[in-house]
Design a protein around this nucleic acid. Structure first.
Lengths: 312, 312
DNA sequence: TTCGTGTCATCGCTTTTTTCGATAAAGTTA
DNA sequence: TAACTTTATCGAAAAAAGCGATGACACGAA
């Protein structure tokens, strides 16, 4: 059982096609077919069902592939360690971030990351929490930036910062500048569309009182936070915006931003990786860069305020 | 980097000799030498210092070997899973147990284990906690039965049972049959010799009052619990014996055994394995067999009494 | 049914890798 | 220095991995 054989099997399990897997592994289809067959023969277990279209894993194959993934991961660790010993700072790093954080966080950190690690190929994604979890487990993404805690079995979480929400009300008629969560007019509340954790966060904050209304005919689901802001602006609506959305942002009319009185709603943003992840050096560096980058934009001491767990 | 190359390097790191490592891997010395050299060349890191006698790991080698051990472990998991899928119940299982538990526990479980898993080769050891930890980390022993908690970074613990201590006093002159720990006559107290965790357990129980006395000229260190019992008997001494020592034991004169009033001193016995250990099926089976075996011998509800952490 | 098409398996051959035995080189001990 | 032990190297042989071409098979369209 060689490392390449493991890679062939994992590629086949993922791509569900001998041809595609072969291409991905830079060998011919015949080689990959022969190698997979050879492993199956050696261990005496049929891993793939070739009669289905596309090719599928047998139940036994599922179990074996799971273990092979672990071996593969350890090999990756090995590569990392070798590179680290040799003082290299090379390889790939793919980062995914939820859409309500990405547009405000990425600009703050990407330049510094790419400058500090000029030999690393960074790949940036903007995905929902759900997709980030999937991709991390599949091994396609190294680190995710999401609202924590997720408390997922296969993942490991690292704190980044606590971000408070501000009230963005473009139809405020009262002269008061002090608002409580309970003052929010649910009739004019706008939310991100389903699948975005901020929908759940904001939904939860305003919840409890009358959750049904949120899905009522007055709410429109926005696919991006920019759209959300625009919709609120145009319709004299109201929503909660995370603090970082305010930084360096010309889209938002500042006079429509209101602080919320305690308990200030907030969310905790953190990094998640696979529990066996090991680009430790890179990870701790990334964490530090993010912490430094957001420091000036966030109020102090928000850490112990109400924190909402995303539902998805 | 093949699996065998990893095995060669690990063998060499362990045996510190190309010849011995080659023998252990069932290849010639030239093959092993060439393969190790080849890996070193491929990764561009010198792993071994050949000028020292015996051969030693370079600092970089230490780091690499650590990772290779992880890969090797995962390969072992792979083997396990393959065997499990194929319904085999084969392989080896080496169990180590502390000396104050071994003579009473092993007889209760070994027959059943070997009967249930007739194709497994069991190896039994009697070692101190310290040695068990070392051997588990080295990978030479699969499971250890010790007094827990150890809270060791590399190990994982599983509860087995809580065992209370009884007073064994061969020179009791008072007519009372009710004793408290504080009644123990330190002048006549006998302990296991250094290195046995029961020395620390019993020492701790009687401690605090006058720890110095324990190492005074009236205490003699016994290397086995049988010797300890004999010495106490012969010298009208006193000691604490774990409950299981009483079961099926003709050595102890029962009229010299006294219950101790609450708080009843006790120790928690558990299984420890390497944190990445995976003969899961075998392990859970072993745990169940042990729990069943000792159940009749132990009093109920001792679980939440004073538990003493072994110092070594 | 039959034909085409896409997909995987198989065959013979080449290249690469692993292993061996023998021997050279290096290091250690007496 | 000689004798001995240990590791490195060499050429040959055996094993394994890879390739291209072709065969086998399933599936849908004619």
């Amino acid at each position: 059982m060689t490392r390449s054989q493991i890679e062939y099997i994992l590629a086949l399990a993922k791509l569900e096609s001998f041809g595609k897997a072969a291409k991905a592994c830079f060998v011919t289809q015949s080689t990959l077919s022969a190698m997979v067959a050879k492993v199956e023969e050696q261990i005496g277990i049929t891993l793939f069902n070739r009669k289905t279209r596309p090719v599928s894993l047998t139940p036994q194959g599922e179990r074996v592939v799971k273990v092979l993934k672990s071996i593969y991961r350890e090999y990756q660790v090995f590569d990392e360690v070798v590179n680290e010993i040799k003082g290299y700072d090379v390889g790939d790093l793919s980062i995914a971030c939820i859409p309500t954080v990405a547009p405000y966080l990425y600009p703050l950190i990407l330049n510094e990351m790419s400058r500090k690690h000029s030999e690393i190929n960074f790949t940036i994604h903007e995905l929902t929490t759900e997709n980030i979890i999937e991709e991390i487990i599949a091994g396609d993404i190294d680190v995710g930036i999401v609202s924590i805690p997720l408390e997922h079995e296969e993942l490991k979480e690292y704190d980044l910062y606590v971000e408070d929400f501000l009230l963005y009300d473009c139809g405020n008629t009262s002269k008061s500048s002090k608002f409580k969560v309970s003052d929010i007019d649910l009739e004019r509340l706008w939310l991100m569309e389903e699948g975005h954790c901020m929908r759940n966060q904001v939904g939860k904050i305003c919840e409890l009182r009358q959750l049904k209304k949120i899905n009522g005919n007055l709410t429109y689901n926005c696919g991006s936070i920019f759209t959300l802001i625009e919709m609120v602006k145009m319709n004299k609506g109201v929503t909660l915006l995370p603090r970082l959305a305010l930084a360096n942002n010309t889209q938002i009319q500042e006079h429509n931003i209101y602080n919320i009185l305690a308990p200030v709603p907030s969310r905790k943003i953190g990094i998640v990786t696979h529990k066996n992840y090991v680009k430790k050096g890179m990870l701790s560096d990334l964490i530090q860069i993010i912490k430094d980058a957001v420091e000036g934009f966030l109020p102090k001491n928000t850490s112990e305020q109400a924190i909402f767990k995303p539902l998805r």
